[in-house]
Amino acid sequence: MDLLQQLTQYAFSGFSTGAIYALIGLGFAIIYNSTGIINFAQGEFVMLGGVLTYFSLTVLRLPYLVAMAVAVAVTTAAGAAFERLTIRPLKSPSPLSLVIITIGGSIFIRGVAMLLWGKDTHALPPFSGNDPLTVGGASIMPQHLWIFGITLLIIAANKFFFYYTISGKAMRACSHNRTAASLVGIDVRKMVLLSFVISSAVGSLAGIIIAPLTMTAYDVGVMLGLKGFCAAIIGGMSSGFGTVLGGLLLGLLESFGAGLISSGYKDAIAFIVLLLILFIRPQGLFSKAQTERV
C-alpha cells in the first residue's frame, strides 16, 4: 500500500466518521437555533434510535423498516416528554440550570435504557450489503454512502423547513428574541416543544443509520454526543452546512492524526482544535461574528 493510497484511505475514513459526527451535531444545532438551549441529552436520542431498532427487530420481530419507524416514533415521543416534563416546568430558565437539567436527563435516559435492554452491545444488519466498495485503492462500506445521503437529505429538509415554512420561520424568530416572538403571536412554548421533537427525530435517525457500522449499546450516546457537540461548535451551531463541515473537519483531523502522527493523540488533536476554535473564533469557523445593534 503506497503513501498515496494510504492518504486516500485516511481521507475516506475521516469523511465517513465525520459524516456521523455532523449528523449528530445537527441535532444539537436545531435545538440551539430555536431555543438557545444546548441539549446534552442529544447523544441519548442517538442511542435510543439504535437500541430501539435492535429491540424492535429482535424481540418484537418487526421488519427492518417498521422497526426503524417504531424507533424514530418512540424516541420522538421521548424527546417531547423530556421537554414537557423537564424544560417547560422551569419558571426562570437560566442557561446553567438548563444545561444541568439536560445532563441529568441524559443520565436518566441512559439508566432506564440499561435497565430495560441490558448492558450488551448489539450490531444491526447493514442496509445494503456488507462488501466494501473500493475507490482508488481505498475502501468504504456501502453503509457510509447511506450516511452521506441521509445527512444531505436532512440538511435539505432542514433548510426548507426553517426558511420556507411558517413554523420554521416562527422557530427562528423565537431564537432571535423570545419576547418579541410572543408579542407577534408566536406560541413560544409550542416552538420549543417542536424543536425537541425535530431534534430527537433527527438524533434517532442518526443512531439508526450508524448502528450497522458502530454498533449500539446503552452507553454509546456519551461519546457520540460529545463528538457531535464538537462538530456543532466548530461549525458555529448552524443548522446547515456549517455543522456538516465542522463534523467532517473533526473526522479528518482524527483520521489523519491517528494515521500520520499517533493514534494515542487522536482525541487530543481533535480537542485541541476545538479549544483553539473556542479561543480564537468562538462564533465558529464558518459564521460571521455577531454584531450587537445599538
Partner: peptide, 19 residues
Amino acid sequence: ETYGPKDTDMTAQLTKIKG
C-alpha cells in the same frame, strides 16, 4: 498503535499497519 474504548472506526490505524 492504540484506540479509545468507545471509538467507532479504526480504519486509520489499520491503514497505517497495512502500509
